[in-house]
Nucleic acid binder design. Structure first.
Lengths: 109, 109
DNA sequence: ATACTATGTGAGTATATAATCACATAGTAA
DNA sequence: TTACTATGTGATTATATACTCACATAGTAT
């Protein structure tokens, strides 16, 4: 059983991973890698209701992935740290491994 | 709106991130980094019901994170690829940024 | 002031996830 | 064969998440 410090760390880390674990949120992160955007433009790009996008955005703010500030009527969201983009290569690494394994299975068939 | 290929990729990537986004599963991955283990030992280490651990394990297998094979009565689980461990530094990166920001806020108070 | 726009939030619903318990199965050992 | 152990799965429940709609708020513009 992991000690309580480690358990707390896993909890915090899981929050970050979970905040990334949704296709729509990944699309938002991918969109924001090119620069800050307002909710309106994000929603249009994603093709989902503004209210829904707004919730996803605030979830990612809570997880520490995004930052935001007001600019007139709009609220601008941005990646808090480019390190979030590292997740993409991590996830692709797992997927590539998956493909490799599937090929191995094919050989046997 | 991301094109359909990208949307499919985000979906697959999200599955991986989501498979990691649970404290118990992170604890399992952390435990397995030192080598393959049977369900029994994993469950004891984690301190949760074997049936529950079994479900978490098969979820991670589906996501392509873990592999498994039988060894007599036992089923041995292991990391499919060490690249999964890269996630930990990614998550820690986000958490460190979070702490840094909190310190900035403290200065202003 | 009124009208308008961007955003966020409450309420409700639908679906997904997590956990527990009981039981079935597969392999081991005697 | 019987008894035992490790694992996985069905059924259930509790909780969390995602989404939609309607509305409230904040700022802008006239």
């Amino acid at each position: 059983m992991p000690d309580s410090k480690k358990r707390l760390l896993f909890q915090k880390q899981a929050q970050v991973a979970q905040a990334i674990g949704h296709p729509l949120r990944l699309a938002i992160i991918d969109f924001l890698k090119d620069g800050p955007q307002c909710v309106c433009d994000i929603a249009e790009y994603i093709g989902s209701e503004r209210s829904n996008v707004s919730r996803h955005l605030s979830l990612m703010v809570s997880a520490g992935i995004l930052g935001h500030h007001k600019k007139g009527l709009q609220v601008i969201y941005e990646l808090k740290c480019p390190c979030i983009l590292d997740f993409f290569s991590c996830m692709s690494g797992v997927l590539k491994q998956r493909v490799k394994d599937d090929k191995e299975i094919l050989k046997v068939l």
